[in-house]
Amino acid sequence: MTRETERIRHELLAIRCRRGEPAALAELVRTWEQRLFFYVRRMLADEEEAWGVLQEVWVAVLSRIDRLREPRCLPQWLYTIARNTLMTHLRGRYAERERAAPDAPEPADEDDPLARYADAERVYAGLARLPLVDREVLTLCFLEDLSIAEIAEVLAIPPGTVKSRLFKARRALRAVLEGEG
């Protein structure tokens, strides 16, 4: 399926969802759950925690779908909601850690136990060792296949900043992977 065909399909799905069609809402979840989970999971070390955040994402999406102004921007809109929900969750988690043990060091992210292939496992483990900002931009670009403009919209930053973050993140990931090798 071409990128344009997929964009039209997403737009029609968004329009149907805005109209409140139950079948369209079910299709939205079925179509996007795996992608959004993958994005959230790359940002969190714990799978159960990622599923919890994804539930919050779906609550937000389903309660706000009627406010989606530009149906053609469905992917960016979904990733923006996922990112905002994730950031709210992380802020709460960090604040809780500060209250519980302000001087305790943060635990290191664990390797992804679901990776099936050696190279993918190495890349996922390398991603887990990168700062969140680097992980996020690499995940959106290479694993979610968003364009620079779409990533800029999701992250609410200029496209030039996306490019510089991608450049920095690629170098950081390469350094991590070469350090393991």
Rank of each mutant, 00 (worst) to 15 (best):
E11T: 10
Y124L: 14
R122Y: 01
E178P: 01
E33S: 13
H89K: 07
E178Q: 12
Q76I: 11
T88K: 11
I148P: 02
L114E: 13
R35H: 14
T2V: 01
R18T: 07
G179S: 15
D111F: 01
S164V: 13
C17G: 08
E6A: 14
M87Y: 06
A26N: 10
D46Q: 08
A23V: 06
E121G: 14
F142A: 10
L177R: 05
L62T: 06
R18E: 06
T31P: 00
A23T: 07
A101M: 06
L68H: 00
E121L: 08
R9H: 05
E11D: 07
W32T: 06
I65D: 13
W32F: 15
R93G: 03
S164D: 09
V176C: 04
L166G: 10
E47L: 03
R97K: 06
G52L: 01
S63C: 09
L25H: 11
C141H: 12
Q76C: 12
T161K: 12
L44D: 08
R3W: 13
E178N: 11
R64H: 10
G92F: 00
P113K: 03
V137M: 08
W77L: 01
L140G: 12
T2Y: 06
E49I: 05
A100F: 02
R19S: 13
C141G: 01
R16P: 00
P22S: 05
R129M: 02
Y94D: 15
L155R: 15
F142H: 15
A101I: 01
V176K: 09
K163D: 12
A108M: 11
M1H: 05
L13H: 05
D46V: 06
R97Q: 11
P131K: 09
F38A: 14
L155E: 12
V154E: 15
A82G: 11
V123R: 01
